[in-house]
Nucleic acid binder design. Sequence first.
DNA 1: ATCATATGAGACAATAATATCTCATGGTTA
DNA 2: TAACCATGAGATATTATTGTCTCATATGAT
Lengths: 185, 185
Amino acid sequence: MVKSKRLSAREALIEAAFEVLSRNPGASLSRIAGFAGVGRATLHRHFSSRQELLQKLTQQALQEMNEAAEQACVGVNSYSEALKKTLTAVIPLGDRYYFLTREPIEEDTELKKAIGQQTREMENLVNAAKDEGLFDSDISTDWIVQAFDHLIYAAWECMRNETATPAQASELAWRTLTLGTGKRA
Amino acid sequence: MVKSKRLSAREALIEAAFEVLSRNPGASLSRIAGFAGVGRATLHRHFSSRQELLQKLTQQALQEMNEAAEQACVGVNSYSEALKKTLTAVIPLGDRYYFLTREPIEEDTELKKAIGQQTREMENLVNAAKDEGLFDSDISTDWIVQAFDHLIYAAWECMRNETATPAQASELAWRTLTLGTGKRA
DNA sequence: ATCATATGAGACAATAATATCTCATGGTTA
DNA sequence: TAACCATGAGATATTATTGTCTCATATGAT
């Protein structure tokens, strides 16, 4: 069981890092290691520097979100449905999402490209849904994407507060987005 | 004109601090001073420690937001109108707002109280507007407040990006909020 | 012109965070 | 059991940040 144990320590660190850094982006490595129930040295064994940790977290966040969105979209038969499934799937990853938008990645062109591409894919999806009539064509795609992003985070916070179940939060976010930016009655 | 100069340095520091910290909460005092076009020593003359700076910023943010909201609401004749005016007035203070929600204030009970009260006032306002029929009574006040907050931030980002003028951004946020959480057609 | 005050620049010390290393331990595999 | 590996704990070094101090300078007030 070496392998599973090895992963579990690393995963505990990653999970703790998302949790701690999403609440306090300047948190020290000690805090992160402590929160993960792990020694500082162990953190450095897995991530040689703070910079590397942040890089790996960014990669992980991107990957998790892409996977979640992709998986949620198998079998859908419209862009509108894809968007809704994506929303629902991504809300529980709010801390990842938050991390991506807030953590300043310095000079890693690879990651910046990947993030840029994700943004573009989202814009395409929104535009396709707009063509299907989901959104008011008078509203800029920029705003819709912006609202989508921030409503995800709003829903995630409701989940974390336990003021809403995941299903409720996702329903509220979807309703607010689609009625709010949809065609007027 | 001593007084105006004295204020200007301090104000430049406060402005720079909001700007820099809203992008990177862990930014060093050097960065902030540099961004303000001021020596690091001068920063320490005005704010004896990082802690004090953060405290003053929090106070300032609270005060500015209260003043803006209060001023915007003179002469309104409904809670719904008050809410709309408040939204419009607060969007340009997005960085202040962001700072309030993100910066972990440690053990300053005074400020925590003030923030808590502001939250409660917002809930009351939303509830009053709900009674006027602005929002669907089936939607929890929690969610409406949450959406309100995050749409403010979304609108502010659009302003900063220059993808929307302040008036446009505020109109989009208001539309999205009210149609999104209003009574269904 | 003179004085007071705020400032910038930089030296300096104190502190906190980061990174590296060693060693003892406990669990795993062979 | 013996060898192995990841780990925790802690010592240590290296930075980065923070906070204090001094001095020369500029600017506004009188």
